[in-house]
């Protein structure tokens, strides 16, 4: 985690200023080539395409249920962000969490994980190829950190998967922490993170809902 802070500070010092101004000069520009249509499996095991969410403003995050730190924190942040929105605004938006560990995160388990934070949250899973495709569309990075798998009983988890296997093991991953704000046409319009003030983020969501 200290590495993240170090990287963040470095990024700000090196290229932050000139590049940040790019986005700030325009209001929520379309980020060309970031995102697009894909197929996945939803929390109920149904095949879905991202086009199914057209007409809704989407906040999309990547992570996995065995993530001990940033994912629960991110979902906690999204929970509060979602509660900043009015009922009508919530109806016009979708908060989607895409797993990067589809081998472990079954649709059912993913559903339990995301709905621990809010019952409206959507978990998307799929085959490894589907996940690879989705992350490539969003230029999101993830990699398996564990040379061998880790016993899940050693991982601090929000919603442990129900299993009788006491020796159950799973992989640990590093992954992007970016939150993608996507408009009603499916265009990515902003890249946020949990350091974004929630009021600012909610304001951006409202801007896209009202476009």
């Amino acid at each position: 985690m200290l590495k993240i802070i170090k990287n963040l500070v470095m990024a700000l010092m090196i290229f932050g200023p000139s590049q940040i101004s790019l986005a700030n000069q325009m209001s929520l520009p379309i980020l060309s080539g970031v995102g697009g249509d894909f197929t996945a499996v939803d929390s109920d095991g149904n095949n879905v395409t991202f086009a199914d969410y057209k007409g809704k403003t989407v906040v999309l995050a990547f992570g996995y249920t065995n993530c001990a730190d940033i994912c629960p924190f991110t979902l906690g942040y999204l929970k509060k962000l979602y509660s900043n929105l009015s009922k009508e605004e919530q109806e016009q938006s979708r908060f989607i969490f895409v797993t990067i560990d589809p081998d472990y995160d079954t649709p059912e388990h993913l559903k339990a994980f995301v709905q621990f934070f809010n019952k409206d949250f959507i978990g998307l899973s799929g085959s490894n190829e589907q996940i690879k495709h989705i992350t490539s569309l969003y230029k999101a990075e993830y990699s398996d950190l564990s040379e061998g798998k880790v016993a899940t009983k050693e991982i601090r988890r929000t919603t442990p998967q129900k299993t009788s296997d006491t020796n159950e093991k799973a992989s640990l991953f590093s992954h992007t922490v970016v939150l993608y704000l996507i408009d009603k046409e499916g265009y990515t319009r902003s890249l946020e993170y949990t350091g974004t003030p929630r009021d600012d983020f909610a304001h951006k969501i409202r801007m896209l809902i009202n476009e």
């Binding site: 990024a11 940033i70 230029k139 890249l191």
Partner: peptide, 16 residues
Amino acid sequence: EEHLLPVTAPWMGLVC
């Protein structure tokens, strides 16, 4: 031609 991730924020390349 490939469209890459535009550099719009300092945290976009961060991984956890």
